[in-house]
């Protein structure tokens, strides 16, 4: 039985990169970003592809994610959780700003708190669950942490500008990132 917490993260980085065909020629304005994280005794590596057009409009054409959660009882469920957890992370990285004013949260409902919708979700999404007999880890949350850094890295690859603050989109519902990325 393998030891928890000592596996090289490199394994997962390499798998996610392979899934995304890292190194392939990308269309103009596209960029790939990668991130890996261990949480809830589970490893997840994620690659995000972004496309940023000349006016700063961002789309996410593809996401690839690999998870090692040790022993998995219901692989289809784990796959669905990895998809959802990853997109949940992307949604928060893109839009999930929470601010308070006079002790009260400003974003009381969806009009003020934007979340990822169908039209903003990736057209291509591939997830893989590593076969393992190690003790089981979580499958719900671990998809979330690597999503934001993978996205931010992809934006850097596409635009040359580092994201220094999240969320990437301001609360003004802008669909353009140009101004916000460097703020």
């Amino acid at each position: 039985m393998k030891q928890i917490g000592l596996l090289p993260l490199e394994t997962y980085v390499r798998t996610a990169a392979e899934m995304a065909q890292w190194g392939r020629e990308l269309p103009k304005g596209h960029g790939l970003g990668i991130a890996v994280h261990r949480s809830f005794v589970t490893y997840v590596a994620t690659v995000v592809e972004v496309a940023v057009d000349g006016e700063g409009r961002l789309t996410i054409p593809g996401v690839w994610s690999v998870m090692d959660a040790g022993t998995v009882v219901n692989p289809r469920h784990a796959e669905a959780q990895l998809e959802g957890g990853t997109l949940f992370g992307l949604s928060n990285a893109l839009f999930g700003e929470i601010t308070a004013k006079r002790g009260e949260v400003v974003q009381a409902n969806f009009p003020a708190w934007r979340v990822m919708r169908m039209n903003e979700s990736p057209r291509k999404m591939e997830v893989r669950i590593v076969e393992s007999d190690a003790p089981p880890g979580g499958v719900g949350e671990p998809g979330t942490p690597p999503a934001a850094p993978a996205l931010a890295n992809a934006i850097f690859a596409a635009t040359g500008t580092r994201v220094r603050r999240l969320p990437i989109f301001a609360a003004d519902r802008s669909d353009r990132i140009a101004k916000e990325v460097g703020r």
Binding site: E83, L87, F110, R117, N119, S121, P122, M125
Partner: peptide
């Protein structure tokens, strides 16, 4: 895909099952 995205854009899923819905 475009027609699906446009029709479904008014239905939020916080579990983000969008890819499977499509």
């Amino acid at each position: 895909d475009d027609q699906i995205d446009q029709a479904m854009a008014g239905n939020i899923c916080r579990c983000a099952t969008y890819v499977r819905i499509r």
